[in-house]
């Protein structure tokens, strides 16, 4: 249809169809449009190229583009579904959808599992957990003795590694987070539920009416 083509031509580079993105996520069309306002801000903070690069992502999380952080790196890698070193608008919306309060618990659990499976072996291993604890301590400028760190890792495996093989598989992970819901709090971002009030500027620009 001529009308649709005209709209596509007007779309900035990298701006995927909000109707299509809404149909694949827990966001409405208006919310996808509101997320575009945020995406524009983040993707132009250093290089205005329509993509969020690693430094722009770090800048948004830490107000510092040079801050190295193991967890921010893992989140970036998971958002970058195409593995091309940058986050496009579609990748941004689809990944954020997992963090929506209405997103299913199973999707959140799977995302968190992949996040913590640093070496992508299909298991969360003891060495990975220890590395993450050390990274957290480093980030917080805290220091704990190796004995205490080992005790924290031991306690974690006693609670999570039900079959005692030294690694946490997906089934064990699901059972563990069911018993420890506080570990999954990071997987829900309450702002995503009222994104249109957080970024209201889209209202004056919306081209598409929500079907719902």
């Amino acid at each position: 249809m001529g009308c649709t083509c005209a709209k596509q031509l007007k779309r900035p580079r990298g701006y995927e169809d909000p109707v299509a993105l809404a149909s694949q996520t827990y966001f409405s069309v208006s919310e996808v449009e509101a997320l575009y306002e945020l995406f524009k801000k983040l993707s132009s903070s250093m290089v205005d190229d329509g993509f969020i690069n690693k430094e722009e992502f770090q800048l948004a999380l830490f107000r510092n583009s040079k801050k190295q952080n193991l967890f921010a790196d893992r989140i970036f890698e998971l958002f970058d579904a195409k593995h091309d070193g940058v986050i496009g608008f579609g990748e941004f919306v689809k990944s954020l959808s997992v963090f929506h309060p209405n997103s299913p618990q199973a999707d959140k659990e799977e995302f968190a599992f992949q996040l913590y499976d640093l070496w992508q072996t299909g298991y969360i291993e003891r060495e990975e957990v220890k590395e993450m604890v050390l990274a957290l301590l480093n980030e917080s400028d805290m220091s704990l003795s190796d004995d205490i760190i080992e005790a924290i890792v031991d306690k974690t495996f006693i609670e999570a590694d039900s079959n005692g093989d030294g690694k946490i598989d997906r089934e064990e992970w699901k059972a563990f987070v069911a018993r420890n819901p506080s570990s999954m709090k990071i997987m829900t971002v309450p702002y995503l539920k009222d994104i249109t009030t957080t970024f209201p500027s889209f209202i004056f620009r919306s081209e598409v009416e929500d079907a719902d």
Binding site: L38, L42, A60, L61, F62, N69, L70, F71, A72, D73, I75, L96, F99, L115, Y116, V129, M132, V133, A135, L136, E139, S140, A151, I152, V153, K155, T156, E159, A160, F176, N180, S182, S183, M184, K185, I186, V189, P190, Y191, T198
Partner: peptide, 25 residues
């Protein structure tokens, strides 16, 4: 008596995992 947190509870306090900060102006 204080209860020791498990590693994932500790890790979940990382600022690098706090995506809410993307929305804070």
């Amino acid at each position: 008596r204080p209860v020791m947190m498990n590693a994932f509870e500790l890790i979940s306090t990382s600022q690098g995992l706090n995506l809410g900060s993307l929305f804070e102006k």
